[in-house]
């Protein structure tokens, strides 16, 4: 079970806005997060990852407290280790496809399985600048999965994929998520792209 209560002041154009979320997620569930631009969807994911600190909040993941502002607990991202897919991919320009995955894990079999999943097995020695937008996005997903995370946070992870590739990848991801026993939160603008994958929704109104 994942229990999240947070309060964060957002700086928005002309003034301030408070992001307030109080929500539980079942372990192993896949939740779609949606809402208008600037509502704080990315901020919400980054708060869970420990990359942004909220003014107030409590995050408990399977009985382990990641954040409790009242008790002064705030685990670093290194200790939380969520699988995080960044909206801008955040790929490492100096590393090849294979090096990205080797940077994250030493498990060769797992790397090979991921490369097949993302259809990047023939591009292992390519650097990000020599990959298409869709290939870059798939690499970002594979890198997040490489650490076998129990919690996966994905920020618009399928926006650059064509419908065919998207459907195939989502089918494969479903199996991987299940195998990892991971809880997944996916930010998406597209109302239909996650159909059949998610089992819950969270609307962030802003």
């Amino acid at each position: 079970m994942i229990d999240i209560t947070i309060e964060k002041n957002l700086k928005v154009y002309q003034g301030k806005q408070i992001l307030k979320i109080n929500r539980q997620f079942l372990s192993g569930s896949i939740t779609k997060i949606y809402g208008p631009s600037g509502a704080g969807k990315t901020t919400f994911l980054k708060i869970i990852a420990g990359l942004i600190s909220p003014e107030k909040g409590k995050i408990v993941i399977d009985d382990i407290t990641w954040l409790n502002t009242d008790a002064g607990i705030n685990l670093s991202p290194q200790k939380r280790m969520p699988g995080f897919v960044f909206q801008d991919y955040a790929l490492f320009p100096n590393m090849t496809v294979l090096q990205h995955l080797e940077y994250a894990t030493g498990d060769k079999d797992w790397i090979n399985r991921l490369l097949l999943l993302g259809k990047l097995d023939t591009l292992t020695d390519h650097k990000p600048t020599h990959l298409s937008g869709g290939q870059q996005q798939r690499l970002a997903i594979l890198r997040a999965l490489a650490i076998k995370p129990k919690l996966i946070l994905m920020d618009e992870p399928f926006s650059a994929l064509d419908p065919e590739m998207k459907a195939e990848l989502i089918g494969g991801l479903k199996v991987v998520f299940k195998g990892l026993g991971a809880t997944v939160l996916i930010v998406s603008h597209n109302p239909i792209e996650l159909e059949g994958l998610v089992d819950g929704e969270l609307y962030i109104a802003g």
């Binding site: 990359l51 991202p77 290194q78 280790m81 995080f84 960044f86 490492f92 994250a104 490489a146």
Partner: peptide, 15 residues
């Protein structure tokens, strides 16, 4: 460098 570069590394457990 985009801030997300270092952030991605941190979420992979890197110091």
């Amino acid at each position: 460098l985009p801030a997300s570069l270092a952030q991605a590394s941190y979420t992979l457990g890197k110091t």
